[in-house]
Design a protein around this nucleic acid. Structure first.
Lengths: 162, 162
DNA sequence: ATTGAAATTGTGTGGAC
DNA sequence: GTCCACACAATTTCAAT
């Protein structure tokens, strides 16, 4: 069980088997009722609720959310865009990052150390939209030195065990 | 409202304003009670439930899940690993992909067209673990031609509006 | 497609081990 | 930390519009 259920500040949480199973169940369906979770784990509902709250409060669970399928919303095409910032504009990197996060179609943003400075993961309708995205948001941006775009053929999540 | 709430097969769903607001609320907290969602949207609980079920059944919501903070679990370091598959081993790409998804620490896997064939997003304890991951899972793999690893300084999600 | 009402089911607290 | 019991709240079905 968690070392420090109430603080929300602790650096590293120690999970027991019950916590790990609970995380797995919630990953599969975060909307399952507490009763149903408790039953599957073989514990009382109130115990399960306490565990769940502790996982949330300690920051192990950063949020309960949904996965939206971009394709069903007409965004058939995903791409990764690798971006290099100009050497003289590196002080603009954090502004650039927060600007990008709110552009339509942006799914994720990675701020990197290494050959590229950023990787943008976008989901848009078609290849014309990819082009438009790069032209409007990147090529036009004076902080951007170069970009390189790769289409995403498949995207999957890890099946980590906690 | 959705064209086709019950099929789960339709390619593109047409959302109205209510659906979009519901998706937003559920993105922020997928565990909110149906009553609370209904109240905020200004509709009856039973209507809200019908909308929510339609969004799930039509595939717009692919799952209700949680975000787990890797750092709180002792995975302090994230990296992207860019992988090129050997020209003579391209038929092994899909096997490679499904092998990788289940390795400990793998968060995401992108299957790309372009300069690199894959991007792996991993979260591990420290730089020794990154090295170990690459040696064990990539360098040792005969299908892999080259890898290039970049540390992730920051990772954020888009704030898309649906 | 939306609703309100009703029956079922779930949540969350407090006291006991 | 876990459990049970209980009061309160939420879910889900259904007939009506």
């Amino acid at each position: 069980m968690l070392n420090n259920p109430a603080s929300g500040e602790k650096r590293t949480a120690q999970l027991d088997e019950l916590d790990r199973r609970l995380l797995s169940l919630l990953s599969e369906n975060s909307r399952r009722t507490n009763n149903s979770l408790a039953e599957e784990l073989g514990i009382a509902a109130s115990t399960c609720l306490a565990r769940l709250n502790a996982l949330r409060d300690s920051g192990v669970i950063s949020r309960f959310t949904i996965e939206v399928n971009p394709q069903v919303l007409g965004r058939e095409l995903e791409a990764l865009i690798f971006v290099k910032i100009r050497p003289g504009a590196r002080h603009l990197m954090s502004t650039f990052a927060s600007d990008m996060r709110s552009k339509p179609g942006v799914q994720q943003l990675f701020f990197l150390g290494g050959a590229d400075d950023f990787v943008l993961h976008i989901a848009v309708r078609n290849s014309a939209d990819v082009r438009q995205f790069v032209l409007d948001n990147l090529s036009a941006n004076p902080a951007v030195a170069t970009t390189q775009t790769s289409l995403v053929f498949e995207h999957s999540h890890g099946t980590d065990e906690y």
